[in-house]
């Protein structure tokens, strides 16, 4: 697997005090040549969450979406403001339960697991389906 280094990650979720990385001491001598290039550390929140007020985190259970890279206990980022389309991974409420599946609008609307061992969920007449939001990312911890 090829890995691209994209930079250093911020300290968990602590928003408060960040010590800039290249802060040099003030005593004497030649100032650090890096001090002009200080940037704020990479912020996972900024990267993963576009609309904070409409974004919720949920925890995935089971293996039905492993094909999409969502393993058991993964944290899913659900943005309720993004309108899902054909093939979006969504969180929906059906029969009083939340499920995470891939939304298929054709040939017939269904909620499709990404694991051949699980059957698709078709919406029957009289059954209510409420789409809660679109899954924009999954965080799997190893």
């Amino acid at each position: 697997m090829k890995v691209n280094y994209i930079g250093k990650i911020s300290e968990e979720n602590l928003p408060a005090i960040f010590v800039p990385y290249f802060l040099e001491s003030v005593h004497a001598g030649f100032p650090s040549p890096a001090s002009d290039y200080i940037e704020s550390p990479i912020d996972l929140n900024k990267h993963l969450i576009k609309n904070g007020a409409a974004t919720f985190l949920v925890r995935a259970q089971g293996q039905s979406m492993v094909g999409s890279g969502i393993t058991d206990q993964a944290v899913l980022i659900v943005d309720r403001s993004i309108k899902p389309s054909h093939n979006s991974i969504i969180v929906a409420a059906i029969d009083g339960e939340f499920v995470c599946k891939r939304l298929k609008l054709k040939p017939r609307m269904c909620l499709m697991p990404d694991n051949p061992e699980y059957p698709p969920i078709f919406i029957n007449h009289g059954q209510e389906l409420e789409i809660v939001g679109t899954v924009t990312a999954a965080i799997n911890k190893f």
């Binding site: 919720f56 985190l57 925890r59």
Partner: peptide
């Protein structure tokens, strides 16, 4: 505490 605690997130299947 669905929205403020890592261990109490809502669960989806």
């Amino acid at each position: 505490k669905y929205t403020t605690n890592w261990y109490e997130l809502p669960k989806v299947n």
